[in-house]
Amino acid sequence: MRDDSKIKNETASTDSPTQGCGCGCKCGSRDGVTRLGFITCMVAGWATFTASVGGLGAMLLRFLAPNVDYEPSQSFSAGSPDDYTRGEVSTRWKDKYGVWIVRLEDRIVAVSTVCTHLGCTPNWLETEGKFKCPCHGSGFRKTGDNFEGPAPRPLERFKIWLNDEGGLEINKSIVFRGEKDEWSSPESYVSA
């Protein structure tokens, strides 16, 4: 044992003191492994390991989310306000754009056809005057307010405005949520 350590010391002493593990610490220095050097090396080693594994993991995860989303256009024209009678829920744009045009007493709003529970498409039941989701039974009033079933919040409304010719324009990428009191925003409805 003693001989071994002697040999080790001798080989160590032939190295120049600056030589080490390459990280600038003194773990390979003439004095052998110091406590500080060991800890520094461990910290540096594990930090490098964690950083590389974490970085790789983040890269792999990020790769799952593409940069470009090929969504069809989010804006469309929905005709003139006079096309919609008072109190009507129009399903005209449901299939193509996923929007119900609802004409309430004093305003026209564009209601999303995506159920706020789990994304199914509710049906408008004219006789019962409500939207009813076939997946889990959520019910919404004409205004989009949720009143039965598991839906946690009202149906979303989209930005709606009148263009220069007096036609309705709808932009689906701007959303107004009732539970956040965003429905009072003038962009979320057209007075009519």
């Binding site: 193509k96 996923g98 056809t113 199914c120 498409t121 076939p134 997946c135």
Partner: peptide, 19 residues
């Protein structure tokens, strides 16, 4: 057809307890 949810819309049978 993304515009028309069947009524009722059911998960596969082995997930019905979760549904």
């Amino acid at each position: 057809n993304p515009a028309l949810a069947p009524n009722p819309a059911k998960a596969p049978w082995y997930f019905l307890a979760l549904q």
